[in-house]
Design a protein around this nucleic acid. Structure first.
Lengths: 355, 355
DNA sequence: GGACAAAATGAATACGATTTCATTACGTGC
DNA sequence: GCACGTAATGAAATCGTATTCATTTTGTCC
């Protein structure tokens, strides 16, 4: 049987760079079995130093490149971790991603990102795609409530799953998040403490996103405790971009009884809000207070520097990865529910109301 | 031979959710061959409607989930596209990533992101990892010059490769980029046109990054044409974060002969620069002009709104993906070198120098 | 140097899709 | 109803690794 033809009688034919060598080729070259080559790669301690060296040399000689796809197939697991997210267009998500990558670096995993752009159908499609991909784990940064069942299915099919950014009400999900309720409560209380009684809220979509709803509830609780009536007229729902923040703020400023302070549920929104104030000729914080959420890299550089809630995005990413790796090790694992601390960062964008 | 045991005589045993069904199971259920199931998935038109329906029903019944890992193995290609980047911590990269994702959505590919955090060794490791992964394509957003050989190796091993953000001097690389030289030249010329003669530059690392060097050269050319001597004392090299921008700017402002205008090679740097000006009691643009590069989402919301260079990051991402898909179709393809237009966006952060 | 345990290696198989080639079913024209 | 071409399906090979189990080699102790 002609096991290696191809080079037959056409010496001018260039060696196709695409004919990748495999472990069998290496084994043949080194005079060992393919199993031994595999062992050299994964458990060198099982191989005699002498043999190990021969194999290493052979790998070098034939130009061997490990085939992860084949390995993944064999062990029935993709060497990838998935991230489900609405959009990467936000500094705080960048922090999360960097944390994830940092922690992944010492492992054999890579990161696959799926972003759903706030669309529930797209999201469902992406979850399905992840299921087909046999990922070794999935970090859920952002989802709509509607797709919780799909996530559960994914989890039940044996994929380690971790929710971030929140402590999910559903105890079946592992979480590495923050206390959104508490954080929003603290910020609102801080504004109340400054003397504000009419506090606007620019949030995300609280109908569909648990994390946003948690913040809304925190805001409401603080108001309630202070005996301030909740006024839906000064609560708006937006996607977290500066432009949307500006529009939302303009809307609030056009109101008959405009708020004296506005709590934006992300720094991006707050940035836009600041711009809107400027256009209305309002000085921040003298005429109106604005606060954000996340403490992204530009927050200290806003004018005025943004008072906000520090969220440990980077740390969250690292911890989420560790949670997944943990699930791999003791795969009959207990629930992981880690709540990372947030911190009120007081800068210059909030002050007592101007009467 | 017992092809389907398991359910034998222990009705209380729960069906393990992890025992995923494969095409053979579906085929058995539908009373067809496994090949037919495969055809139903990929080329339904080859299968009689009647059969197609039977197979679809069988898939439903056994809870079949397509196994991408196995498919990837079979066709010796990973259904993933890679992205090599320094860091995702930048709005302009977010735009690129969104563009990529958008374009990928209608395909069977997912995006794997590798970030090297400006470290050349890490980068090399990641390129190697990508090589082992048999990716269907790699988009290179950022690399150091040192690793060009590794990229070439990757390309030669048959992976469609596209460089973004720049038109590489090396003609072997396909590019979907912008004219950095020209863009920087235009901005510098604009500042000169306003009357500035002492123009600082806060750039990235021009020793290691071609794209940054191209911008530096554009800057120099504009100066030269205007008969202004290049002064290395007012040219600094920084990683693109607001904090670094602030530090760089502080340094420039502390100079004996401080610049009257500063061109920051990214908006993030410019943002920090603005803050530094504020701390020095300088009004922008009255006392000093500051310009940026990228036109990220927060640029219009800076105080004052940032004059910058609009870079079509989103479009670049989409085009890069298309370039890769093109390489798949006609895989004896000609070189792709697409240069997208940039645009000088004049807002409020630059004015004539104050004499 | 022989016995025995431990270490090192090899042989063989499984993983689940794609794809080629062969074969059968179907339909049409005479 | 026969022949023929096309459509539909099946059988079988293949991809490259991990892994189990059997076998050989090595080393140690008396």
């Amino acid at each position: 049987m002609p096991t290696q033809a191809c080079v037959a009688d056409a010496p001018h034919i260039e060696v196709n760079s695409m004919d990748r060598k495999n472990m069998r080729d290496v084994a043949a070259r080194a005079g060992v079995s393919q199993a031994t080559v595999s062992r050299v790669v994964h458990s060198p301690h099982l191989v005699k130093p002498n043999t190990r060296q021969k194999v290493a040399a052979a790998m070098e000689e034939v130009g061997y490149v490990y085939n992860t796809v084949a390995a993944d197939f064999t062990r029935q697991k993709n060497s990838m971790i998935g991230l489900i997210i609405f959009t990467v267009r936000s500094s705080i998500h960048s922090e999360l991603i960097e944390g994830i990558q940092e922690e992944l670096e010492s492992t054999r995993f890579s990161l696959v990102i799926a972003n759903s752009r706030y669309d529930e159908a797209t999201e469902r499609k992406l979850i399905q795609l992840f299921r087909e991909r046999n990922l070794s784990g999935v970090i859920v940064a952002e989802t709509t409530d509607e797709n919780r069942p799909e996530l559960k299915t994914l989890q039940e099919s044996g994929v380690p799953l971790v929710l971030t950014w929140q402590m999910a009400a559903d105890p079946d999900f592992d979480c590495v998040g923050i206390d959104n309720h508490r954080s929003a409560y603290d910020m609102t209380k801080y504004l109340i403490g400054l003397g504000h009684e009419r506090i606007g809220l620019i949030a995300g979509n609280f109908d569909r996103i648990e994390r946003v709803r948690q913040r809304l509830e925190g805001y409401r609780l603080a108001l309630e405790e202070a005996g301030i009536a909740f006024d839906p007229a000064i609560v708006t729902s937006r996607e977290p971009s500066p432009m949307e923040g500006k529009m939302a703020m303009s809307q609030l400023l056009a109101l008959q009884r405009r708020p004296t302070a506005v709590f934006a549920a992300s720094d991006a929104l707050a940035l836009g809000a600041l711009a809107a104030c400027g256009e209305y000729g309002l000085r921040v914080p003298d005429d109106i207070s604005v606060s954000g959420f996340d403490d992204v890299d530009f927050a200290p550089f806003c004018v005025p520097p943004l008072t906000t809630v520090r969220v440990p995005g980077y740390e969250m990413g690292k911890r989420a990865v560790r949670a997944i790796l943990d699930q791999h090790e003791w795969n009959g694992h207990g629930p992981i529910r880690l709540c990372l601390p947030t911190e009120l960062v007081i800068r210059g964008s909030c002050a007592a109301p101007n009467r």
